[in-house]
Design a binder for these strands. Structure first.
Lengths: 134, 134
DNA sequence: CAGAATCCGCCATGATACTG
DNA sequence: CAGTATCATGGCGGATTCTG
């Protein structure tokens, strides 16, 4: 393994052991691991600007409640911005901020990894299942 | 935004809308977002090989139960391997597989992003809190 | 249309006790 | 030492209803 990586990794665990309530990685991981957040970010990144119900349709399976909650959290984190038009019927548009857009980059890395190694993982799972059954 | 990125992102949402039960991203995200999995991977990546109780001490706050569960899941996914020495007292060693090691790379990207943008996120949160309070 | 409010079930996680 | 077994709980998220 490259020396650079070794150093970086040292840093990761160091950060995580010490301040466990203020670890950037844990914090971000919470959002990344969230059931709907990243999907929402991806959709917005794809389509640019979306209204509430458009998101509702695009993100398959999300409930109205969770969409509201997710959007509010992402907005609070400054990952997207909400634009409300004072009119009837209401119209609200959601767009990623540049901060939100920047998150897509590491997300892609993860996506690439997932795609590349999913077969290996599935194979491992199948093998493990058989081993346990035996 | 670069055209390459645009294409990749299209692909992400496409994969996610279609097969929602077999989406590699969701699948991997589940593990990445898991409370303890990535911490465990990071520790192992750092220290190379660790015994059960060493991990227990290193991963601050994890319960015995969750460590067991996490390790079993990671093993099933082929991310780490378990080596058991038949002796008394028992001795079990955990080591990342090359698959597990490879996951560290995208994880680093995320770590870098988290570190770089955490100030912006905190600022956004503070601002949002004030806006809500007003 | 874009939510807010409320209720509720269930699963993930934690705590505790026991074992080979 | 390295787990397993069992129980308790809290909060995540779904379903439903109501509004401006």
């Amino acid at each position: 393994m490259a020396g650079y990586q070794k150093i970086m990794k040292k840093e990761i665990s160091k950060k995580c052991e010490n301040d466990r309530d203020d670890c950037p990685v844990k914090d971000v991981l919470n959002r990344v691991g969230d059931k709907w957040s990243m999907l929402t970010v991806i959709m917005l990144s794809d389509h640019g600007t979306l209204r509430f119900n458009e998101l509702h349709r695009l993100i398959d399976g999300i409930s109205q409640r969770m969409l509201t909650v997710t959007l509010k959290t992402l907005e609070a984190d400054g990952l997207l911005k909400r634009k409300m038009y004072q009119q009837i019927p209401p119209k609200v548009e959601y767009t990623l901020t540049s901060l939100g857009e920047s998150l897509v980059v590491p997300l892609m890395t993860l996506y690439d990894w997932a795609n590349a190694h999913m077969p290996a993982i599935k194979a491992a799972r199948a093998k493990f299942g058989k081993a346990a059954a035996t």
